[in-house]
Amino acid sequence: METVEQLVSFNHIPVQLNGGTPWGFTLKGGLEHGEPLIITKIEEGGKAEQCKKLRVGDELVNINGSALYGSRQEALILIKGSYRILKITVRRRSVPVIRPHSWNLAKLSSTESPHSSTPVPPPTPPSPPSAMQLHPGPYTLPWHSTADNR
């Protein structure tokens, strides 16, 4: 079975801002705080908003061709060193739509056949394999959790 981490993919989005400072976005996090460098605010009417590519929550991974190692101080130095053009690459989560099992789809569909007035019962869900044991307890996590079970 796939884990949440295997189902989540990331898109790398190149962005070029022109015209010089202020660039119109705010960063939070960094190695100093034990977090990735995340865009937390995009100024209304600023260059970041006008480019229409950046979003709050994007992770900054590259500035002017330099891969970042996660330090906020490093990122600020590179950003401030950009005179007329700022080229950045951000990483954005892309969570695919997970389709329910076919028996769930049948439950959601109409319970009547289009050619008769007799209701058609939904199919019975498949039973889990006998070797599969579910142990709900303190270590179960919701499907959307990103916590590590170590």
Rank of each mutant, 00 (worst) to 15 (best):
H12F: 07
R91K: 15
P100G: 15
V90L: 05
S82K: 06
R72S: 08
L86N: 08
E32Q: 09
P122Y: 07
H101M: 04
E35N: 12
L134R: 11
L134W: 08
I85E: 14
K52H: 05
R72M: 15
Y69F: 13
R150L: 10
K41F: 06
G20A: 09
I85L: 07
N18P: 00
V120G: 02
N11W: 01
A106F: 12
A75W: 11
L68G: 00
D148L: 09
R99W: 10
G137R: 10
L134S: 12
I13A: 05
H12T: 07
T111V: 03
A131E: 01
N62D: 15
P121L: 12
V95F: 04
P114F: 04
G81M: 07
S117A: 13
L17C: 01
F25S: 03
T40D: 06
R91E: 12
P114D: 09
T118I: 11
L76C: 03
R150M: 04
P138N: 08
M132P: 01
P122R: 05
I42Y: 01
V95S: 12
G57E: 05
I13Q: 03
H101A: 07
A131I: 10
G29P: 00
T146A: 11
L105G: 01
S66N: 11
N18R: 15
K80H: 13
P129Q: 12
N64L: 02
R91V: 00
P96F: 00
K41E: 11
W103I: 08
Y83C: 05
I98N: 10
I85N: 14
G81A: 15
G57P: 08
L17F: 11
L86I: 04
R72C: 15
M132T: 12
T26G: 05
H12Q: 07
P14I: 03
G29V: 04
T111S: 14
N64P: 02
S116Q: 07
S102W: 15
P123K: 08
A75V: 09
A131H: 13
L68P: 02
I39T: 09
G81S: 13
K52C: 10
I98L: 14
Y139N: 15
E2Y: 12
K52L: 06
